[in-house]
Design a protein around this nucleic acid. Structure first.
Length: 282
DNA sequence: CATCATACCTGTTCGC
DNA sequence: TGCGAACAGGTATGAT
């Protein structure tokens, strides 16, 4: 669920709230989610937030960085007692902040805090030298950013190299960075392509259509502040709205939005819930 | 190398 | 109603 639009939404808020703070002390409650030496980030200031696909990076003033993949249920929650117009936290903030699923606490200057919550603990947070960020295995293997680096020509090449199901390919982070199950479902639907189609069977017209569809659904996701299907909230503890505006994801049994009168069906593709309209996705 | 199944976790939903 | 099974989705890992 946290895919490019969700992680980007987190990034935008961290830029607003976290940048400029000094990290005074880091408390680790669940060691499994944290690797590296916390001493390397204590007393450093947060200078810049970056995103690589679904990975977040906080660059610090001392040439170290905090790198994190929140996977399915990770949350960064920012709390500042000096900030008056704080909205009540969403119920999706697991157990509160701090709560039973708070595994890390970053104590910041001016009494602010950044909590890392993660119900399922699939996510990770690590400390590395800023110069080493791009050598982290996941980031090193990451494919191009669909909204920036991905050109039609590159996309055509990626699709042409494999007969894997096109929807599965879209979710392969080493091919394209940032697309997950929700936006992959919506993109192939918007392009009227059967999710099971071998990627290399698409003609150039279809490739072009899918290329545009990917950008459209990701931009819509961004505009709605991401999809809060499971645990996703932004650091101010608020939910996104894209789950109310998906095209097919989670829409089993509902009427096809292309107006063909078909019904959305669900099946498993590579172990992932896949939603589609058999009438218009060819 | 490419592809696929499974493990990692826990909260929620479903079926009996 | 209660309880166990299935499900949810992202990726590292091991198997094929």
């Amino acid at each position: 669920m946290p895919e490019l639009p969700e992680v980007e939404s987190i990034k935008l808020q961290l830029e607003r709230y976290l940048v400029g703070h000094r990290i005074e002390k880091v408390e680790i409650r669940h060691p499994k989610v944290f690797t590296g030496d916390k001493k390397n980030i204590e007393n450093a200031k947060v200078k810049k937030i970056r995103r690589f696909g679904k990975v977040l990076v906080f660059d610090l003033s001392n040439a170290y960085s905090v790198v994190s993949h929140i996977k399915l249920t990770g949350q960064f929650i920012y709390r500042d007692p000096n900030l008056k117009r704080e909205q009540p936290l969403s119920k999706k903030v697991s157990g509160g902040a701090p709560g039973p699923h708070t595994h890390l606490t970053f104590n910041l200057d001016r009494n602010a805090k950044l909590y890392y919550n993660d119900i399922r603990r699939f996510g990770w947070v690590k400390v590395v030298k800023t110069s080493e960020v791009e050598n982290i295995d996941f980031i090193k293997k990451l494919g191009p950013e669909p909204l920036n680096d991905l050109t039609l020509k590159k996309f055509e090449e990626i699709l042409g190299k494999t007969k894997r199901a096109v929807k599965v390919l879209l979710m392969d982070q080493s091919k394209i960075g940032g697309i997950g199950n929700i936006y992959a479902n919506d993109a192939v639907f918007l392009a009227c392509i059967n999710p099971k189609r071998p990627a290399n069977s698409l003609d150039s017209k279809e490739v072009n259509k899918l290329f545009g569809a990917i950008k459209t659904v990701l931009k819509r996701g961004l505009a709605y502040g991401g999809a809060s299907e499971l645990a996703f909230v932004t650091p101010d503890g608020q939910e996104g709205k894209y789950q109310e505006h998906t095209l097919v994801y989670g829409k089993e049994g509902s009427v096809c939005k292309h107006g063909c009168q078909g019904k959305i069906e669900k099946f498993m593709l590579n172990g992932r819930g896949t939603y589609w309209c058999r009438k218009c996705q060819k």
